[in-house]
Design a protein around this nucleic acid. Structure first.
Lengths: 245, 245
DNA sequence: GAGTGGTCTAGACCACGAG
DNA sequence: TCGTGGTCTAGACCACTCA
């Protein structure tokens, strides 16, 4: 069924390693033989072997660690970002148990945020940086921006606490707007999330508006594609139907 | 601010090319000098030069075409998938003008679909395959599955027509559930969408349920990450029939 | 057939991690 | 220090496109 015109050397090797991993010949967490050994075994040059490993790395089957070796990935606990109104409940709409690292700052709105937040240039914003972790593995990054004129943060925010606009100032919110894209991480994101540069990330922009159209919060989230997904649930407006339950 | 401990040769070259592209020295649609020429110019081997180009390719700045050359990407018209209830209106919730390629078939539900559709094994399904195009550029893939016992397709479906469950059998729908992930495309997806293997895609699973909990439709969508995003808009239940404020 | 990118080699040397 | 992966070289040969 699948055509295999010229199975290049590296694809053949990747396929063999894939099989050995899935069949348990190499077990999760285990170190693979060194690249030199594997290259010798498959009778290819190290570059070719490395390009085979790069395929597996892109599939999140293998973790390369400089100076240590290539390791079979442990299956990852999946995390789920609940979008829509659910996202307002708490940042830990995330399913897994997680630690939070929080950093806040007051900044002048840079240009790409003024349009998003619909505020004048150089407005004062509060920026909240989140990083969620489970053990040592980072699970996601979040930059949350709140216009200061809407949310004068009276008490200095304590660290390690979930802070969200909706938590301490419950205004009449009218809309949660979320835009999702897929891309490769920036170098910075890759190192912070401890993921490979070739692993896709979910990039999510959330804008929360109150009932007079003011933007109450803008959030930029980055989630590693190998373990995270986002779910959105909507119900058609049941206006004309009797809302029997 | 950004640390540059050892700017590897390929990153330096990529940076230079990036600059030349953004400054207009190389214009959109234009062919770059051949890899051999560039390698000579930068005084590196062809492999190194190719790995520099691979970076730009991953950023969707450059299109490699075998036998022809490397081309500066034209800026892409962005397409937007409108999620939630809006997705029910029409598959062409897609913003851009597009052609559709449709293929339908009746199949036995494979195992991964029985759980999604909540139907018994080997149930009869109608499978609808979509590919949207704008000109020659594919914009997205969709596999839509409809249980046949819910939707006996009486007339054979005409090709080139938008077919959606909601279009010809408007049931009392109760819920649209969408799950979004980011990943790299499979080889097949990459060739169908004419994208590079290193370009992330948005993968979207949509499940539509009617008011008695039956799954009316399941859709698997794949959208190229360089031009597509998905938006979801939700309003907190501002129901007037709510008893509590 | 001429020119392009795609794959691969058989090395060299550098950078990181751990003992 | 030693073994690991990371970068790079200077080629060879193959596959694709187009005139």
């Amino acid at each position: 069924m699948v055509i295999r015109p010229v199975p290049s050397r590296r694809h053949a090797i990747a396929e063999d390693l894939r099989y050995r991993i899935s069949s348990g010949h190499f077990k999760p967490g285990e170190r693979l033989p060194s690249e030199t050994q594997l290259a010798t075994h498959y009778k290819v040059s190290t570059s070719t072997l490395r390009s085979a490993l790069a395929l597996l790395q892109g599939e999140s089957l293998v973790d390369k660690i400089h100076g240590k070796g290539n390791f079979v990935r442990r299956p990852l606990r999946r995390i789920t970002y609940a979008g829509g109104v659910a996202a307002l409940a708490s940042w830990t709409a995330f399913s897994a148990p997680s630690r939070l690292t929080v950093r806040t700052a007051t900044i002048e709105a840079p240009s790409h945020l003024t349009t998003l937040l619909n505020v004048p240039p150089h407005s004062s914003l509060t920026e909240v940086l989140f990083a969620t972790h489970e053990g040592k593995t980072p699970q996601g990054l979040a930059h949350i921006y709140v216009p200061n004129d809407l949310a004068p943060i009276t008490p200095p925010l304590p660290e390690q606490i979930v802070v969200r606009q909706a938590d301490f100032l419950p205004p009449p919110l009218s809309e949660v707007h979320e835009r999702v894209t897929a891309r490769l991480p920036t170098g910075e994101e890759a190192t912070t999330l401890r993921i490979s540069c070739s692993l896709a990330v979910l990039s999510l922009t959330r804008v929360v508006t109150d009932d007079v159209g003011r933007v109450v919060e803008a959030a930029l989230l980055v989630l590693p594609g190998d373990r995270a997904d986002a779910v959105f649930t909507a119900r058609p407006t049941t206006d004309k139907r009797s809302s029997k339950e």
